[in-house]
Design a protein around this nucleic acid. Structure first.
Length: 553
RNA sequence: GCGCCUGUAGCUCAGAUGGAUAGAGCAACGGACUUCUAAUCCGUAGGCCGCAGGUUCGAAUCCUGCCAGGCGCGCCA
């Protein structure tokens, strides 16, 4: 609808120019918005104001020229007017909204899809938590955001791959091995001072017990062998646990990419050699530095330390190069907001390997404050005490957790209250939205019992949908494709969440005021068509968020 | 000290590319179930959009400076 209005304005301006009323043929982009106030119509444009200087005419004269040349072959507009300093407002004929139902019923679950991605290959990497401990709530938010962004991009015509980067190499893994080995030795009766820099959580003891089951006696040749065995065992085990938790959370990756594999295949060495050949690395103070400052970072960064070990950054350079080598045109990383200082150097690395700056984007996800009944839940990573993602899922359910994670812009901190998330009331937005789906499902069932089933084809006359609440619902449904598009463009799933809450609110209001199943078959059919469309869009939107749409509640 | 993010109703938050009189939910108060699911709805009230300047026809939105909070500034990950 909005697009049609844009076209109308453009054509009117063109015609006015041909008749010599508007001097310039340059119109710029025609912008159309939906005014907040009903008295300003259904759509409004500031076209006259933005092109006033170009046309060298007062805005109101430009507006008049456009208004005088509007043509409306589909008869969408009931009336149009000039307002204020030069706005042009359009009032849509109420019956012009209902054709959207036909589109929805024809496209079903694909309604709102688009081709803006043009099949472009894009990779979304998310969660990528170190395999040194279970996933906690913060990772859950990252998972929800990343997964939803991937869903949305895919829906908008991108060829999306979902990837998890496993940091299964380096010091932290060694520390993990040491931690497990030490607990293992404790189980064998050795006294130890467990160092504070080791992983403290109880799960380490659990892993040590499992190691004990495999190695019934301390038959490690050396500590080194023990560490390496425990490290490999623990990392594998923890990664498997993450995979299970994420699956329960509805998140499934196309690929789990091992950091270690980058070393094994020589890709880290290769990328450093390549950078060396191109003069982008240099030695200083016994270390090897990458010239990230040439690409906008505030200083150069070490890739090989004095002792000869590569930094995490070195494998990250190799990893990101590999992403582009695999053919991804766009790479999106979802990171915790505390890593934001890492963006400039990563971006520099991407540019250094010959890619455009805009081919690499990072979505920063802010932290989650876990509450219970308004009071903070104590969590200390150092002491290894934290509420895991699995705990939260088991307590509040997958749907509530995912939905609530997506009720905020990803860059604003989120209070997650376990009590609220469990509540089955208006406080809890997920049920508010899902309830719409269940209510409509119930109406459909009742309708079928009454033999109204065959009237639900969606192709029946729908002119009788003229109540205010019906027009509002139709307008909201018409907006959905635009919402999805924006959500994809800005990588902001919360736009869909908010849209769904608004649509749900409109539906509940409608439901309370009007009956769908009436004595009038024509009216009943039209209303069935409307609520079926609402149901379809609710399900459609929820699926982009990774939330289910129940038939009954 | 430098950099990034945030600051909107009592609380939690929306307001993309600047648009007209600032938007929800919660909490508070008052109403609505003999009806297709009350996990719902209707009504009332609530605001120097952190502060001060600037840019222009027009600013919550853009620029500058302050104030407050969070995060980051390693040859850690």
């Amino acid at each position: 609808m909005k697009e049609k209005i844009k076209t109308m304005i453009y054509h009117a301006a063109l015609k006015a120019h041909q008749k010599g009323i508007l001097p310039s043929p340059e119109f710029g982009e025609v912008e159309v918005e939906e005014p907040k106030m009903e008295t300003h119509g259904d759509f409004s444009t500031n076209f006259a104001m933005t092109s006033a200087s170009r046309q060298k005419m007062p805005p109101r004269n430009v507006a008049k020229a456009v208004l005088d040349h509007l043509s409306d072959p589909d008869h969408l507009v009931e009336r149009s007017e000039m307002a204020g300093p030069g706005f042009i407002n359009f009032f849509i004929r109420p019956s012009a909204w209902s054709p959207i139902l036909k589109t929805i019923h024809a496209q079903k679950g694909r309604f709102g899809f688009s081709e803006i991605g043009k099949g472009k290959r894009v990779q979304v990497e998310y969660v990528s938590s170190n395999p040194t401990g279970p996933l906690h709530v913060g990772h859950g938010r990252g998972a929800a955001v990343g997964d939803s962004v991937a869903n949305i991009l895919s829906f908008c015509g991108y060829n999306v791959q979902r990837e998890y980067y496993v940091n299964d190499s380096g010091r932290q893994i060694e520390t993990l091995g040491r931690s497990v080995l030490l607990r293992f030795k404790e189980l064998l009766g050795e006294k130890s001072d467990f160092p504070p820099e080791y992983y403290q959580g109880d799960y380490i003891r659990g892993l040590a017990k499992e190691v004990m089951d495999i190695k019934t006696k301390p038959d490690f040749e050396s500590d080194e062998e023990g560490i390496s065995f425990c490290a490999r065992y623990a990392a594998k085990n923890i990664t498997e646990g993450m995979r299970r938790d994420l699956e329960q959370f509805g998140v499934v990756f196309n690929r789990w990419f091992s950091e270690q594999s980058l070393y094994d295949s020589g890709k880290v060495d290769n990328v450093l050699k390549e950078l060396h050949n191109r003069g982008m690395v240099y030695e200083k103070d016994g270390a090897l530095w990458f010239q990230s400052s040439r690409f906008g970072d505030e200083k150069d960064r070490v890739v090989i330390r004095k002792g000869g070990q590569a930094t995490y950054f070195a494998s990250d350079i190799a990893y990101h190069k590999d992403k582009y080598d695999r053919g991804f045109e766009r790479v999106i990383d979802v990171w915790g907001a505390d890593h934001h200082g890492y963006i400039p150097r990563m971006s520099a690395a991407v540019q250094a390997s010959g890619h455009r700056k805009d081919q690499f984007q990072v979505i920063l996800v802010q932290l989650v404050n876990l509450l219970r009944g308004g009071h903070p839940v104590a969590m200390s990573t150092r002491a290894g005490e934290f509420v895991t993602l699995k705990d939260v899922m088991d307590e509040v359910g997958k749907d509530a957790a995912r939905f609530i994670f997506l009720t905020r812009h990803h860059e604003s901190p989120l209070d997650f209250d376990l009590e609220v998330a469990k509540k089955k009331s208006n406080d809890n937005p997920v049920y508010y939205v899902q309830y719409v789906h269940a209510r409509i499902s119930s109406i459909i069932r009742k309708g079928k019992e009454r033999g109204a089933a065959e009237t639900v084809s969606g192709d029946k006359p729908i002119e009788c949908l003229s109540a205010l609440e019906e027009i509002q619902l139709l307008k909201a449904l018409s907006r959905y494709p635009d919402v999805v598009c924006c959500s994809a463009e800005f990588m902001e799933p919360h736009r869909i969440t908010f849209f769904l809450m608004e649509l749900a609110s409109l539906f509940h209001a409608y439901y309370n005021k009007h009956r769908v199943l009436t004595e009038d078959p024509g009216l009943t059919s039209a209303r069935m068509s409307l609520v079926l469309a609402v149901k379809e869009v609710i399900r459609n939107g929820l699926s982009l968020l990774g939330v289910s749409a129940p038939e009954t509640m």
